[in-house]
Design a protein around this nucleic acid. Structure first.
Lengths: 340, 340
DNA sequence: TGTAATATTGTAATCAAATACAATACAGTT
DNA sequence: AACTGTATTGTATTTGATTACAATATTACA
């Protein structure tokens, strides 16, 4: 096990002060007026000794860690891991590294993660906030640490955020079902107050109303995040046996995957008996016997925009808070039925 | 923006030295023989001021960052993101945080990540190594930094690793196909020298041989990781049109997803025309019209064991290198056909 | 040659925390 | 009262790097 070589070692190796080495290796020879031959000698020595700066020491001195804390509901969910990958790539381009944490939609766990990341002095946060964590986000902002919310946000809270227009997206989906002559349209959502979910529900209801379809309470199936499988299975069964709707709109891919399994189990035929539209993508949607129509959010855009906003904050280029709306489009396939 | 409160602030607040505060807050009052009332006063002050230790400073002093660097091929791949989640949870239990990076199976990118993580002084690495990176791993070991390889490993290299027995697992899958009367069994794999892939191919060939089936070169379809989609589509088409096999064994879920799409496109019926078995899981497998039989690796075990091995190393509890074999079992469903 | 101006390089403080060692205080003993 | 021993608390160094400022060397010019 070789010991690490530090600035001091490089300096001693050629008999100069650490200051010089630091200046040269940071490209500040000009400002520090270091002689050209000295500079070369230093660079050569650093290379010879294979000097690697200690970023921890640098962080301590500079007060910056070049680290972004990413907090999502669950990194194993493809929706978030895909975003994570984009964030990773974008962050790397600018010398940042990402540490991640999964909140499981729990406010408590999220607070824990924020604390842990804070004591590690992450330079910024990118968060898909759990329900009821507005105060947590506010605290981060107050501390002067850049934050970007994604996927969800808190109306009224002054923070940068990136998300789609959930109200419209849901509306688009529901209108497509209506266009295909469906009149009794159910929705499967999470029972959370989070803005994105509320907006999807509102968008769904508004689309019904706009088309003079009277919303029925039992059409809205709400599952808890903590046990999707069981909740969806049980509550959906109640709605589908006997069949009280002719179409279903799923608020997320996880809900859809759970729901489609139950639909298969009940032997309901898509789209003839029941038309389907979901939010987000899934490999499963491509292989369902009736390829699933879905609202596609550009995860690439979400990830890229999130990092862009964070970098703007970090470089003080932004004044007031940004609210970036990312595109969402309906990918129409068999599952939503057809006009006739 | 409030300034951070440091040890010094707490000390000044009650007029004592930082040493005392440090001892007390680290639970070393006994060793340092700090008076009981003093200790209480300090704890109270720390709480009042909401003191949060600066882990960066601590890391510098202690030479430990309580951080694990996780390097996988692609964090957006559910196989790896699922493991990442397990690693995250296990690591958190022990006060560790995870930073991640995706190598895209590129040796160069992987080296980059290792360098970046090294300068940040991660305490340990968990890596699913890209092809041809044995030297990189060796270097880490030489530097005395704990590493655990997962999913893949390098025969002969002395490092801790966690993986399934790929040879046997592949054999099990192929034998199942043979049991179901398939005689012309193809395999779709990656064209890499990585041990896990080689073992799967060898297991496949051995199973054929053991059953007196003569392997034909064209049965083995090899795709490059860089463009799965096109490679699989093109090469599989060559094998399936006209149909030269009556069964296909996919070496990973990504390959299977790409392959199944092509199979659908070609209108080949599973399992009647073609029986299917894949490695790993996927939501897609559940929804394919003929539910896909697959080799299930326990990702939970892989993740947990990886962290366990790392912690052992970090606590010097381990002497020689461990080689943990995780269970893999065949989940038999429709796609692999039946006996008659 | 003396002095000012400029070019180079070194010194030392700083970041926040840990800790070896020093220092002081106080009680008990003779 | 002087001394020893233990109980408490403080001082100062260390970690590796950055950087303001000080110091020295060199060159230019009168």
């Amino acid at each position: 096990m070789e010991k690490k070589v530090a600035l001091k070692d490089v300096a001693q190796h050629i008999g100069v002060s650490v200051a010089l080495v630091s200046y040269v290796l940071n490209g500040k020879e000009k400002e520090a007026r270091v002689g050209a031959d000295m500079a070369n000698k230093i660079r050569k020595a650093a290379a010879e000794l294979n000097y690697q700066p200690n970023l921890i020491a640098k962080s301590l001195k500079m007060g910056k860690t070049k680290t972004i804390g990413l907090i999502v509901a669950d990194i194993s969910n493809p929706f978030f891991s895909t975003i994570a990958r984009i964030v990773e790539d974008e962050a790397k381009k600018h010398g940042y590294v990402v540490i991640f944490g999964s909140s499981d939609e729990s406010a408590e766990k999220q607070l824990d993660l924020i604390d842990v990341f804070s004591t590690r002095l992450v330079d910024a946060f990118i968060i898909a906030p759990a329900s009821g964590t507005e105060k947590q986000i506010e605290t981060i902002v107050k501390r002067g640490i850049p934050v970007v919310l994604m996927d969800r946000f808190f109306p009224g809270l002054k923070v940068d955020c990136v998300h789609i227009n959930n109200f419209n997206a849901a509306g688009k989906a529901v209108k497509q079902l209506i266009k295909n002559n469906r009149k009794r349209i159910g929705m499967v959502a999470y029972d959370t107050m989070q803005s994105h979910m509320q907006d999807r529900k509102q968008g769904y209801k508004a689309a019904l109303k706009e088309n003079s379809i009277r919303f029925k309470k039992q059409w809205l199936v709400e599952a808890s995040y903590q046990n999707i499988e069981k909740d969806v299975a049980a509550k959906l069964k109640a709605l589908l046996k006997p069949l009280q709707v002719d179409a279903l709109f799923f608020a997320t891919n996880s809900l859809a995957v759970a729901g489609l399994k139950e639909i298969n189990k009940l032997g309901i035929k898509v789209p003839d008996d029941l038309a389907i539209i979901s939010f987000d993508e899934s490999d499963a949607f491509d292989f369902f016997y009736s390829p699933v129509t879905y609202v596609s959010q550009s995860l690439v855009d979400i990830g890229k925009e999130a990092v862009k906003l964070i970098l703007n904050r970090l470089h003080n280029k932004s004044k007031k808070n940004a609210d970036v709306i990312v595109e969402a489009r309906l990918i129409v396939r068999e599952s939503c039925g057809s006009k006739l």
